[in-house]
Nucleic acid binder design. Structure first.
Length: 573
RNA sequence: CGGGGUGUAGCUCAGCUUGGUAGAGCGCUUGCUUCGGGAGCAAGAGGUCGCAGGUUCGAAUCCUGUCACCCCGACCA
């Protein structure tokens, strides 16, 4: 493709409504254009990237034995009513009505439709297992779309659904999908991690997520180098401290702390570390009352863990500050476990504290030198906090590392949640009707494009992992109007490279060199070849590798060979 | 949906407090000079100031309503 034929509009300035780099760069490089909140047009260059991602996914899904189908994006309400999700799914589901006043929705996912297909098509255990997949548009009416393509309302997802007679078969396909995903993200050239996850609202039991590592990621994941432990921080168990609680040594004291509220304030005011402070959080109980949760001051509450406690409301809700003040007689900033009459749960680490500071349950007052057992009853301890870097791994192999990630893939074992309610059955060996068991496997295709940029960019622009690069080669001819020999050399290279199977983007615009270089960096194509008067005189072209910035000269007639070697060495890794 | 903020040229923004008939930089068009990391000069095109009401002799500016977008929270590929 010649740039004179492709109207590429790039921006020097950062669009005001884009917050994260990937969104900014995608807009600046002309990959996408926003139509409306959470709705984007994929422009020619962006679409090429999206298609490359799709293709790799398609190849690996096919290799893993999955069957590609294409389901409607508009789905009838009746199916969703069968599983009950018409009512449960809520406002995320975009509902529409046709001319006959019949209800439909725009697919946020396709369990219902695929289960409908399966119950019609699959009759015998001999046909199982079957794994259907599609790469298709989804719509979720997110409360707050943001981060460009990373959380759009309309997006491209690869969704797969497998059907089995028994758990063993499901386990097998689940593992094959985990392997396929690992191959996909490896082939895409992304740094990623597979972690244990919780199933969310889709239901089911076993579930793992694939995260592209990026500092801007919304999720935190924890893993241990020394063992196989890897989990979303939501799920990672925090082990009780190894050392027993130190003996009480301080004498209890009551300290006026006017205006001191947060743990940081308390620690600073008392001139102690936040880990010497105990924080008391009040959440709603499941029978209308309140429940207290105690954590070490430097720890963070894990809501998922807390809502599993007996007596705690699900989902977890923090108690309103007014209610806390009214029922406990102290504002949120001055609470502590001493003398509390509501049910109390302490995190393991909180239970291991000695001589700690905490609120006194009186306005603007704190206690210091407090000790369990001596000053208040021994608490029931549970795992209530998020793990932190340096915590012991539950796998026993050492300590945990923590990083941020963007969730780009999620695999689940669904069990019979959908097949049961939709009565998707086959006959088994004994001629008995059996409800199939299911797995489902998603990849956020369009999100991968954003995540890849989050992970791979510099001050000048995007740095595509080679497999995602919209073109193989960015060919730049410098000052085309000035020198016919340059134009001729560039054109010959353009044709030769294409004949050799390379996808080439030729910058034949009548623009200044600086503009071309800047655009090339912004767009981020892996290999760049410059043909200019200087080099052409000596029969040379100049090569530059976008990811490393490494430059080399090569004879014009050797460029094809040169790039072949480059690609080969990249493929070897 | 709750809280905060913004809507002025394709993009980034100024002008609004104190009403007087629309601006800058980048981009775009044309010409000349330039030409190896976002050129210079000159001449242009381009905006019913988000929309609708209201106040006023007069509204981008003040008032009311409305819509859109962005940020913070719960959700997720």
């Amino acid at each position: 493709m010649r740039l004179t034929q492709l109207p590429l509009t790039t921006f020097k300035e950062v669009p005001a409504d884009a917050e994260i780099v990937s969104h900014q760069l995608m807009l600046r490089a002309g990959l996408i254009r926003r139509l409306s909140s959470g709705l984007f047009t994929w422009m020619p260059l962006g679409l090429r990237v999206l298609r490359k991602v799709e293709q790799i996914i398609r190849e690996e899904m096919d290799r893993a034995g999955a069957l590609e189908i294409l389901m409607p994006v508009v789905q009838p309400a009746e199916l969703w009513k069968e599983t009950g999700r018409w009512d449960i799914y809520g406002d995320l589901l975009l509902r529409i009505r046709d001319r006959h006043e019949r209800d439909y929705c725009f697919a946020p996912t396709a369990e219902e439709v695929v289960t409908e297909i399966a119950r019609r098509e699959l009759r015998s255990y001999k046909q199982l297992p079957v794994n259907y997949y599609q790469i298709n548009t989804k719509f979720r009416d997110e409360i707050r779309p943001r981060f460009g393509v990373m959380r759009a309302r309309e997006f491209v997802m690869k969704d797969a659904y497998s059907f089995h007679l028994d758990q063993a078969s499901l386990d097998g396909t689940y593992e094959r999908m985990a392997e396929a995903y690992t191959r996909i993200f490896t082939r895409l050239g992304l740094r990623f991690r597979k972690v244990d996850a919780h199933g969310g609202e889709i239901g089911g039991s076993k579930s793992q997520e694939f995260h592209v590592l990026a500092d801007s990621g919304e999720d935190q994941i924890a893993w241990c180098e020394g063992d196989s432990f890897a989990a979303n921080v939501e799920l990672a168990p925090a082990l009780p401290p190894r050392l027993p609680r130190p003996a009480a040594s301080a004498t209890p004291d009551r300290v006026p702390t006017p205006g001191v509220r947060s743990i940081d304030d308390v620690a600073a005011f008392l001139k102690i570390g936040t880990r010497q402070c105990l924080k008391t959080l009040i959440v709603e109980g499941n029978e209308g009352g309140l429940v207290a949760l105690c954590l070490r001051g430097d720890h963070e509450l894990n809501p998922l863990k807390a809502e599993r406690l007996a007596g705690v409301a699900r989902p977890l809700r923090m108690a309103a500050p007014e209610r806390v003040l009214a029922e406990l007689g102290a504002p949120v900033g001055s609470l502590g476990p001493v003398g509390l009459t509501i049910p109390l749960f302490a995190d393991h680490s909180a239970g291991a504290m000695a001589d700690f500071a905490c609120g006194a349950n009186a306005p603007d007052t704190h206690l210091t030198g407090v000790n369990w057992q001596r000053d208040l009853p021994e608490p029931a301890t549970h795992d209530l906090r998020n793990v932190e870097a340096g915590d012991l791994s539950p796998g026993g192999g050492g300590t945990l590392s923590i990083a941020r990630g963007v969730e780009v893939g999620h695999i689940f074992q669904l069990g019979d949640k959908y097949s049961q309610s939709m009565h998707a059955t086959v006959l088994d060996q004994d001629g008995k009707e059996r409800v199939m068991t299911m797995g489902c496997y998603g990849i956020g295709v369009s999100r991968i494009v954003g995540a890849a940029i989050e992970q791979n960019h510099d001050a000048n622009g995007i740095i595509w992992p080679e497999p995602m690069s919209p073109y193989d080669v960015m060919l730049i001819e410098l000052n085309p109007k000035k020198s016919e020999s340059v134009t001729a050399a560039a054109l010959k290279l353009y044709n030769d490279l294409q004949a050799a199977g390379f996808e080439v983007l030729l910058d034949d615009r009548d623009a200044r060199p600086g503009v071309k270089f800047a655009d090339a960096d912004l767009v981020g194509i892996t290999h760049r070849i410059v043909v200019g008067e200087r080099g052409v005189k000596d029969g040379k072209a100049e090569y530059r590798h976008r990811p490393t910035g490494a430059e080399e000269q090569t004879a014009l007639e050797d460029v094809v060979e040169f790039l072949r070697n480059r690609q080969a060495s990249a493929a070897r890794g």
